[in-house]
Simulated scan of single mutants.
Amino acid sequence: MTEQSLAADFFDTLYQADPDPWRFETSEYEAAKYAATLAALTKSRYRSAFEIGGSIGVLTEQLAPCCDALLSVEISALAQERAIERCQHLPQVRFQLMNVPHEYPDNSFDLVLLSEVGYYWCQADLLKAQRRIYESLEPGGHLLLVHWLHDAPSYPLRGDDVHNAFQDFAAIAPLNAVFSQRTADYRLDLYERP
């Protein structure tokens, strides 16, 4: 495990070389995972949603129709420019450059989505993010985690590290586990703040 979270320059380098480095727009795997992500949400509508690490906005665009307001933040300006362009027809979506957990919005949310982001943080930043996410989550609000499970040596953590840390955190926070799904490639966990 590395001692530091991955910084904006790591992602900017990837997006400069390829505007869609993870094939969010074309991958069957990503399409199926996005469908499972949206299907896991147990409410038909969210008043105020927060997406951490929106990348180029493919999932943002799909999530927006069930949100009255959606704040999507990203560490890479290059990625977020594409997300803004993709979602310009969705007036309920706002975008902001933000380095979570060091920066965090003042708002409260009834949905926080952490999809494919947690393993870019070091352990200390993951713990800080847990506290900030929990504090921003309204009673009855949902936290949805989705992470790839395979080894990526350049990432500080693995998907299971992130989900296991939230599972431990949920026991003391408190957060109630609502739904869990594990495939060969990703893990999905939905929590509700009581």
Rank of each mutant, 00 (worst) to 15 (best):
E3Y: 07
A7I: 07
A7P: 00
L14I: 11
L14D: 12
Y15H: 03
Q16W: 03
Q16K: 14
Q16C: 13
P19W: 04
D20L: 09
P21R: 14
P21A: 07
R23E: 11
E25K: 12
E25T: 09
E25W: 13
E25C: 13
E25F: 09
S27G: 06
E28F: 04
E30G: 11
A32K: 08
K33A: 14
Y34P: 03
A35T: 09
L38E: 11
A39N: 15
A39C: 12
A39T: 05
L41A: 06
T42M: 11
K43T: 07
K43W: 10
S44T: 13
Y46F: 07
Y46G: 06
A49G: 09
A49Y: 02
A49W: 00
F50R: 06
E51D: 15
I52W: 05
I52H: 05
G53N: 01
S55M: 00
S55I: 01
I56Q: 01
G57W: 00
T60A: 04
Q62K: 09
Q62F: 00
A64N: 04
A64V: 03
I75R: 08
I75V: 00
L78S: 00
E81S: 05
R82G: 01
H89N: 12
H89Q: 12
H89L: 15
L90V: 08
P91K: 11
P91A: 02
Q92G: 06
V93H: 01
R94M: 04
F95S: 06
F95I: 07
F95E: 03
Q96G: 06
Q96T: 11
M98W: 04
M98R: 06
N99Y: 12
P101Y: 06
H102D: 13
D106L: 12
N107F: 13
S108N: 08
L111R: 03
V112D: 02
V112T: 13
L114D: 15
S115N: 10
E116D: 14
V117W: 02
V117H: 12
Y119V: 05
W121F: 02
C122F: 09
Q123A: 15
A124P: 08
L126W: 08
L126F: 07
L127S: 14
A129N: 07
R131V: 14
R131H: 11
Y134H: 09
E135R: 10
S136Y: 05
S136L: 11
E138D: 14
G141D: 03
H142W: 14
H142K: 02
L143R: 10
L143T: 03
H147L: 12
H147W: 03
W148G: 11
L149Y: 00
L149K: 01
D151S: 14
A152N: 15
S154P: 02
Y155V: 01
L157A: 08
L157S: 05
R158K: 13
R158C: 04
D160C: 12
N164C: 15
Q167A: 11
Q167G: 09
D168W: 06
D168R: 07
F169H: 09
F169L: 13
A170N: 09
I172F: 11
A173M: 10
A173E: 05
A173C: 12
A173W: 00
L175H: 00
V178T: 02
Q181K: 06
R182C: 15
T183R: 05
D185W: 13
Y186E: 04
R187G: 05
L188H: 01
L190S: 00
L190R: 05
Y191N: 00
Y191W: 09
Y191T: 13
E192K: 14
E192R: 02
E192Y: 02
P194G: 10
P194A: 07
